[in-house]
Every structure is written in C-alpha cells, then in structure tokens.
C-alpha cells in the first residue's frame, strides 16, 4: 500500500492534463437495446492526457458506454464528440474516429490466423497505407515496448494470455492513436499475468496517453487515474479523484460496490 502511494506521488506530476483540449465529450447520451434502457443520460468530458477509470457492477453498462465512443455500438440520443469529430451515421467520420481511438478488449480479439507481427502491421498497412517495411519497423518498436519482440513470428494461439493482451495493446498503438479505450483488459487473465499487462498500461499513462479504462484493478486506479467513475444501472452514479473515491465514497451504491470488491 505504502509502495503504491509512493509511486503515485512520484508518477503523477509527470502526467500533464490539458486544461482546454477536450479529447472526448459525451453529452446527454442514451441508448436502448430494444425496450431495455441500457445507458441513461450519460455526460462525460475527458480532457487530453486525462486517465479515467470506470468501474461498476457487471451489467451496469460500462462496456456499452465505451463501445459507443468508437461506434461498435450505436447510441440513440445525445452527442458524442471525439477529437472534435461528432459521431453520426456518416461512415467517413466513424472511420476517422476509429483511426484515432485504439481499443483493447477483455478477450484480446487478436486475429488467430495471422502472426503477431502481421496482427500489428495489418491496420497500418491497410488503413494508414503505410509501406510494409515501415509498418514492420513500427510494429517491432511497439512489441519491444510491451516486451515481447521475440514472439513476433508466432501465432496468437501459441502465446499466454498476458502476452496476447500485450500484443493487443501493441497492435492498437501501431495505429498511433490519440485515445486508448480499455474494456476490462485484465479480467480474463490468470492472476500472475495481470501485472505484466498493468505495467504496460502504467507506462502508457506515464507518457501522457489519454485513457479510458474499464477495470476493477483498484491499485491501478489509485496509481494512474485522475478520476474514477462509478456506474450502476446505466448511469454515472459517482465521480471523484481516486483517493476520496476509495476512502470516502458518497453514494450508498458506491459504498456497497466498494465493500464487495475490497472485501
């Protein structure tokens, strides 16, 4: 605990959050699955360089919310503005946003028929039209950053879960995104592999990446988050800086949730 606190004190000043530059703005967003009202009046503003952790019980709509940001899900009411681009049905804008927003999934979603290197070079080559050689250099750079360059020619099925998730992060980074979304990146991992993935994410945070992370790793939240958001039943229930959020939760639902995950 004291170690984390020391790291927090050390790491935080390095991460500059912009005062004026808005990365993501969600205004009055609502979404329904059929008759089921999944997201209710979501309002959220993420500044450039800001790191936000989203937590909440299963089924509360966390995944749905961040998947709306890169249009894996369509919202029905309200506005989502990413990097100054308003999300509409316009395919061109959706493509533009997806190019700027990287996403890491709970189940990695690597492409099993391609090697690790090909997984990483695919989008730069086909979406960014980067020459193959350059794309491979970029890919190797990021694979080194996530500490698995030696696995480049293997297939995803030959790697451990932690390694696969690090590849997934590298694959996103190869597109040089300005914003990264994480949807429970460590929930499908064996305990001993969680740290290697969190370390990579902490590294990213320290470099000033704008991050929106759905996670229940509270140590990670304390270490890197500027704000923690608690969702329940499709709404944002509480929002606070990590220290007060964990030590002094206001809403009773937050208290209940925290008491359950922190024992």
């Amino acid at each position: 605990m004291s170690e984390t606190a020391a790291m927090t004190a050390e790491a935080k000043p390095k991460m500059a959050v912009s005062e004026t530059d808005v990365a993501i703005e969600i205004v009055g967003m609502n979404k329904w699955y059929g008759d089921f009202h999944v997201l209710k009046d979501i309002n959220l503003k993420v500044m450039r360089g800001e790191r936000i952790v989203v937590c909440g019980p299963s089924g509360s709509g966390k995944s749905t919310m961040i998947r709306c940001i890169n249009r894996l899900e369509e919202h029905q009411k309200g506005d989502i503005i990413v990097d100054g681009i308003t999300l509409t049905n316009d395919l061109k804008r959706i493509d533009e946003i997806r190019r700027e927003v990287g996403m890491v999934f709970q189940h990695f979603n690597l492409f099993p028929h391609l090697t690790i290197l090909e997984n990483c070079t695919l989008a730069p080559i086909w979406v960014r039209k980067m020459p193959k050689k350059q794309a491979e250099e970029v890919a190797m750079h990021y694979l080194e950053r996530v500490k698995i360059p030696e696995q480049a020619l293997k297939y995803p099925g030959q790697l451990s879960g932690g390694q696969q998730q690090r590849v997934a992060i590298a694959r996103s980074l190869c597109m040089n995104p300005r914003i990264m979304l994480f949807d429970e990146p460590t929930s499908a991992l064996d305990p001993e592999m969680i740290k290697e993935v969190l370390d990579v994410m902490v590294g990213l945070a320290e470099e000033g990446m704008t991050m929106l992370c759905v996670t229940h790793e509270m140590g990670f939240a304390r270490q890197v988050a500027n704000r923690v958001i608690f969702m329940d039943a499709g709404q944002i229930v509480e929002e606070n800086a990590p220290e007060p959020f964990f030590t002094n939760p206001q809403h009773e639902r937050t208290q209940l949730f925290l008491s359950q995950i922190l024992h």
């Binding site: 890169n70 894996l72 493509d95 997806r98 190019r99 927003v101 990287g102 996403m103 999934f105 189940h107 990695f108 979603n109 690597l110 492409f111 099993p112 028929h113 695919l122 989008a123 086909w126 979406v127 694959r171 996103s172 597109m175």
Partner: peptide, 28 residues
C-alpha cells in the same frame, strides 16, 4: 463477434475486414 470488433476498432473497412480477417478464418 470479437473478430469483427477487433477489425472494426482498428478502422478496417467492411471489405477489408471480410477479406483479411473474417473470410480467411471462415474458409479455413
């Protein structure tokens, strides 16, 4: 479904996604 989402999140267009990710696996 994750394969579609992985491909879409990277910004691949429909035909790229089908041709590079989905079809090769489905045909195999």
């Amino acid at each position: 479904k994750g394969q579609y989402e992985g491909a879409m999140a990277l910004g691949l267009r429909y035909w790229q996604m089908m041709g590079l990710i989905i079809m090769p696996q489905a045909l195999k």
